[in-house]
Design a protein around this nucleic acid. Structure first.
Length: 281
DNA sequence: AAATTAGCCAACCGCGGTGTA
DNA sequence: TTACACCGCGGTTGGCTAATT
């Protein structure tokens, strides 16, 4: 979220209720006052802090404003592909435990993650006429979205400060970008093939390098992200994703393909969607 | 250019958990 | 043990901006 809206917010839309409690957007003056109060009295005891500060805000409101916006380590700007991957993975594990998920994304707030989920993920789910809680959608995310994000991550420069290595993922599904169909292979969109930054592994890469037409024809490439089916396959190999900070966390697996999963229509519609889906603005 | 719609996100609300007197 | 206050979480809403008609 841009900061401008809030910083420029005037008191025009901020109202006071019957008890003189202010609601609505925070003004710059209020922000400054809250920041000063916290530096004087420390975080916590929010109701007391609200009184001491002279702000006509509830303690609850002060806490929220501080944690979601004013706190120095709050990271602004769009979520990186890496962060989105973490969200997808952890949400598949924990569901709507936003605060728990946020603990593994330094500088990101539960509110931000929740908003991301509601505005982006659920939007796509609606677009595909799926329920985000359905296994079908989970599979879609796992087999399409995550691979694509991983590819994006590979193409995106490392952030200046890597996240701490405490991320307790990933239980299953990260994959080798070799397995990810390239945009340039799908249609007219040009996208560089990502074949760099991968530690070579022994075995047959060719199976994963098949182009999208072959892949869809065989209805198969999705299965290369499934560790279970992979475990049953002698053609499953390990590799390390070796770009950016991700290399510390994600053990990327390569694979071969064989089983069916979703029909080609779904696959095509997924990849045919406007690239907005994959934007990380 | 104006009106309408959609997207996004900050902030609010209600509820449950926890601490304390 | 109970009552109350505080805190934190997840769901929801409201308002601003951008995009579309």
């Amino acid at each position: 979220m841009s900061t401008s809206k809030s910083e420029s917010s005037s008191s025009s839309s901020t109202s006071e209720d019957d008890n003189g409690v202010r609601r609505g957007p925070w003004t710059l003056e209020e922000d400054n006052l809250l920041t000063q109060s916290i530096s004087s009295y420390g975080e916590g005891r929010w109701n007391l802090l609200a009184k001491r500060s002279g702000l006509k805000r509830t303690g609850k409101s002060c806490r929220l404003r501080w944690l979601n916006y004013l706190k120095p380590d709050v990271k602004r700007g769009n979520l990186t592909p890496q962060e989105q991957l973490v969200i997808l993975e952890l949400h598949s594990k924990w569901g709507n435990r936003w605060s728990k998920i946020a603990q593994h994304l330094p500088g990101r707030t539960d509110n931000e993650i929740k908003n991301y989920w509601r505005t982006r993920i659920q939007k796509q789910a609606r677009h595909m006429k799926m329920d985000t809680s359905s296994t079908e959608f989970e599979e879609m995310v796992r087999r399409f979205w995550m691979p694509r994000l991983l590819q994006k991550a590979a193409e995106t420069p490392s952030p200046p400060h890597p996240p701490p290595p405490a991320i307790p993922i990933l239980n299953q599904t990260f994959l080798n970008p070799f397995c990810v169909p390239q945009c340039s292979q799908i249609g007219t969109q040009a996208a560089p093939t990502t074949t760099h930054n991968i530690i070579p592994w022994e075995g047959d890469q060719g199976a994963c390098m098949m182009n999208i037409e072959e892949t869809v024809q065989h209805s198969s490439f999705m299965s290369c992200f499934d560790p279970e089916s992979a475990n049953n396959s002698s053609q499953f190999h390990h590799g390390l994703y070796h770009n950016s900070d991700f290399s510390s966390y994600y053990d990327i697996k390569t694979c071969n393909v064989e089983s069916n999963w979703v029909n080609n229509d779904v696959a095509c519609s997924m990849w045919g969607m406007d690239d907005e889906l994959w934007q990380f603005k």
